[in-house]
Simulated assay, not measured.
Amino acid sequence: MKTVMVTGPGEISVLEVEQPSAGPRDVLVKMKACGICGSDHMYTTYGGIPPRQGATPLGHEPVGEIVAVGAEVTGFAVGDHVVMDTMRFTDGLLGSGGAQGGFSDYVVVKDAAAGVQLRVVPSGIPWEVVALNEPMAVARHAVNRLDPSPHDKVAVFGAGPIGLGALLSLKRRGVAHVVVIDIVPNRLEKALAIGADAVINSAEENVVERLVELHGRSTALGVRGLKAATDGYIDAAGAPAVFQTVVEAAGHGAKLTVVAVHKKPVELDLGALLTTELTISLSMGYPTEIFEVTDDIIENWQKYALIISDRIPFDRVEEAFELAATPGAAEKVVVTFD
């Protein structure tokens, strides 16, 4: 079968490898779609994923159809459509340093158990939409870390896939008002289509002033200057300007969750933040959220479908990786299989 591997710094290759088979406790899954993540580009740039040495399989946003079920496995049947928890594979993280990757014709799930590595989903949802399950779980964890109340007002920085996923999870929780902030007009239009209550183009508007207009002004004792009554902020952008803006905007008792990867150190003026008592939390992966978000995708898949910008067949996978790695060329690229 074919599989995509990092074969050197800045280099991926489609290689022929032996097709896996299912043992008595395993499930064999034929891949149907797999999203390209920013970390795939990072792995490629570095030429591999520790601790694995040499050629490294890629792909950790997969969805597929079960084609073989081991004799000792219960809860699954041939033909089931399944999403995967790529962090629970017993042969290593799928597509992130483990023995297999989702950009393959087939993946074997060893020691398969329902609700652990796999969950069955309805067959009527497009494959490429179900493949959003993994990144949407990342977004859901960020929202859970923020832990907003239904009456809260929240600002999301970044209208890429994770920011939009956070928007959908915030609305799933019934959050009263969500503003999405970005500098790309078509991203902001998509945020409105998905359900944002308002958007701010930070390249053209003063973010603090607009947040005060939308969420009110914080007048808590000891807080100086113009501060927004925004209750929570999510950084899904990873730009230093986000921290600077939150420091400027945050009123007393606000919360900030950072899910974006910051590639450079960020200067933080703790003195300016002291009277606000801002709570800062970081968000990584999806300890419990991988199958929590599945229900919302099943119920609202048409909204999730708007996140996908490009659907490219597996026989053009190298082109798909090049597109995903080109700044501004695409938002969310999903590779589809026959």
Results as ranks from 00 to 15, higher is better:
N201A: 09
P150H: 00
A99T: 13
S104V: 06
A33Y: 03
G102I: 06
I49C: 14
I280C: 02
A33W: 06
T288R: 11
P51Y: 04
M284W: 15
I312N: 00
T90K: 08
L93D: 02
V138F: 06
L256T: 02
T245H: 10
V130L: 15
G59C: 11
G95F: 05
E72M: 12
A22K: 01
V107E: 01
G195Y: 06
H177C: 12
A241P: 08
V67Q: 01
D40F: 11
P126N: 09
L221R: 14
G64E: 04
D197G: 03
A239K: 11
K332I: 04
N206I: 03
G102C: 07
L211Q: 07
M87H: 13
L58H: 01
T219L: 14
A155S: 11
P122V: 09
I298Q: 09
H215Q: 10
A228K: 05
R210L: 09
A196D: 01
G54P: 10
K110N: 12
E11W: 07
S169K: 09
G251R: 04
V116N: 12
N133F: 08
Y304K: 04
G163T: 04
T288W: 05
D235K: 01
L273M: 15
T44N: 07
S202T: 09
G216W: 11
D235N: 06
L118D: 05
V223E: 01
V69F: 06
G101C: 08
C34A: 03
G328K: 09
V184R: 05
K255S: 14
E205S: 11
Y106A: 01
G59Y: 08
D147H: 12
V6M: 02
G95K: 04
G54Y: 07
L118K: 05
